[in-house]
Design a protein around this nucleic acid. Sequence first.
DNA 1: GAACATGGTGTCATTACATCA
DNA 2: AGTGATGTAATGACACCATGT
Length: 227
Amino acid sequence: MDFQGFADTKLALELRLSPTPSINPTNHTKKPNPGSDRPHEPSLTLALSGDSCVGSSLSSASVKRERAVENTSGEEEDEDGGVNGKKKLRLTKAQSGLLEEAFKHHTSLNPQKQKQELARDLKLRPRQVEVWFQNRRARTKLKQTEVDCEYLKKCRKILADENKRLRQEIQELKVQKVSQPKYMQQQLPAATLTMCPSCEQIIGDTKTPFTPKPYFFNPFASSSAAC
DNA sequence: GAACATGGTGTCATTACATCA
DNA sequence: AGTGATGTAATGACACCATGT
């Protein structure tokens, strides 16, 4: 697995996981989530009418209007069910394929024109195309979240292993130190030797003791370049 | 230029239906 | 045939932005 591409991803995920109050399942009111509405999420990350549809949108008022119009004039949509029933049409393979293709090129239908054209080509209502894109974006995001989750799990494991290894190393060094002859211990006071954690060089100057820089272990860095 | 209304588009949570094991 | 799980189309609420008045 290539972890290189996760740099942005990880950051974004961390931001998401930050303790912002996210979901209130009981309260349907929207939480203040500034910026979440805009497409700022890194692709890491891992949103969807005829004459009546011209100018359609998800704005409550306009959507209601749109639906009202559809209900009064949209009988032709019900090739498989009741007029106002919740009959859900299943998109054909061809329709889905075409939508997928469009989605590859742009995940949003920026101008109305695109939506209208797609709807015409697919013999769907623009609203349906719009909804499809919304759901598709949601699916993409969900998938990406799963990927991020896996990545973080791997990170966690690697860090745990590294932590274990370092603890072991410390233990060994302690044992070594105890087993050293007394005269050697006196000759080389431990305080005078410091190892740079980045370059692993011994610094033996007692007057200017090595002050370690904050050191963060990067499990995926090929080599540490801190020094 | 500020305030407001309106329209368009997005996300999010949820519902409801279709399909499959 | 009945059923639970899963996938997904559709809905509703709300936020933000652009534009017109």
